[in-house]
Simulated scan of single mutants.
Amino acid sequence: MRFSDRTVVVTGAASGIGAAATALFAREGAVVFASDIDVESGKKLAEETEGDVRFVRCDVCDPAAIEALMDRAAEETGGIDTLLNNAGAGGARESIEEIGPDAWDRTMDLLLRSVAMGIRYAVPHMKGRPSTKKGGASIVNISSVAAVGPGYSPTTYAVAKAGVLHLTKCAATDLAQHGIRVNAVQPGFINTNIFTASLDIPDELKTQAKAMIAQMSSNAQPVARGGEPIDIAEAVAYLASDAAGFVTGTSLIVDGGITLGPRHSWDPEEGGAFEALIALEEQVKQAQQTA
């Protein structure tokens, strides 16, 4: 029960990583304020999850709604011990030579400004909490492997998630004086609705598409299975717990190894440059022996 007597706020809680994290925190003793714009799924989550889960509708693109969420959590429980800034979506898909300013701003508001404002409005309720004396008061931000380089997502999403990483470091330095730790998690390809939601296909086909994405992702990295929301939730829980009391301003990559290198670096069937050199060496030796 790592989170007994603690208050946790989770944004984007109605599905995927947010739902998995909500269930984990609640199961381990926290009072969880689960927020989302999906009211039906959010209420169902609160009703069916073991523990104390309280759903609050919150559009993280509206700073006033974020402030109201944090105020409500503090009013009902006396403060906030952990904030998980998780809400997000795929955002604008256009390349940099095509995207318009409005689409750019909407994506940044959803993926980056919401994280900044989540921190801004949670911190007044985190100062002086008992957990700060145990190393447990913490903020965890969901970034992405897209933050480390191109090729994992659309451009605007990648830039926003890179911003989340730098914001995490800056916030960690700002908030150290209050005993508040700030860290990030960078998921790889996780089997959630974020991919199918961005596809222009009928809803009845999205379940099939999700299964296809899961199969594709299981072949995309050294760990030969698709990532699941619980994989990220476990990483979040570690960073939020007292076990990570000496950890701040850093990011934990949870990606099955997809960022380790190109496929030939880990797939023996692909072969790499080094293996090609070894093979060439053997060919030269054989040629010398037959000469």
Rank of each mutant, 00 (worst) to 15 (best):
S95I: 03
D71Y: 08
A65L: 12
D102I: 04
E98N: 10
E76T: 04
A89K: 13
C58I: 15
D62H: 12
D59K: 13
A92Y: 02
V115D: 02
A89D: 11
V56G: 05
E98T: 05
T107K: 02
R93I: 06
E94R: 14
G88C: 12
G79P: 00
A73E: 04
D71T: 15
I99F: 09
L112P: 03
I99K: 03
E98G: 03
C61L: 13
E98L: 06
V56D: 08
R57C: 10
E67M: 12
A116W: 04
A68I: 11
W104N: 01
A74T: 06
R72C: 06
V115H: 04
A74V: 04
S114I: 00
D62W: 09
V115P: 00
R113A: 01
A64P: 09
L110T: 03
A64V: 14
M117Y: 05
E47Y: 08
G88N: 12
T107N: 04
G100P: 04
D71Q: 15
F55K: 13
G51P: 11
A73H: 07
N85F: 07
A73V: 08
E76F: 06
R106C: 00
A87I: 09
E94T: 06
G100Y: 01
A103I: 02
R106T: 03
G88Q: 11
D52P: 03
I96F: 06
R113Y: 03
T107C: 03
D59P: 10
P63E: 15
R113S: 04
R106Y: 01
A92C: 13
T82F: 09
L112I: 03
I80E: 03
A92D: 14
G51Q: 14
G90H: 09
C61H: 12
R57D: 10
S114L: 02
G90Q: 11
D59G: 11
T107V: 06
L112T: 02
D109K: 06
G78H: 06
R57E: 15
M117D: 04
G100E: 05
R106K: 14
V56Y: 11
E47S: 12
L84C: 09
E75N: 11
E48W: 09
R72D: 09
D81W: 11
L84S: 06
R113L: 01
G79S: 05
A89Q: 13
A73K: 07
G51C: 13
D59M: 12
E67D: 14
L84P: 02
D59N: 15
L69A: 09
I99W: 04
M117F: 07
D102R: 01
G78S: 07
R54D: 08
I66F: 09
V60T: 14
D52Y: 06
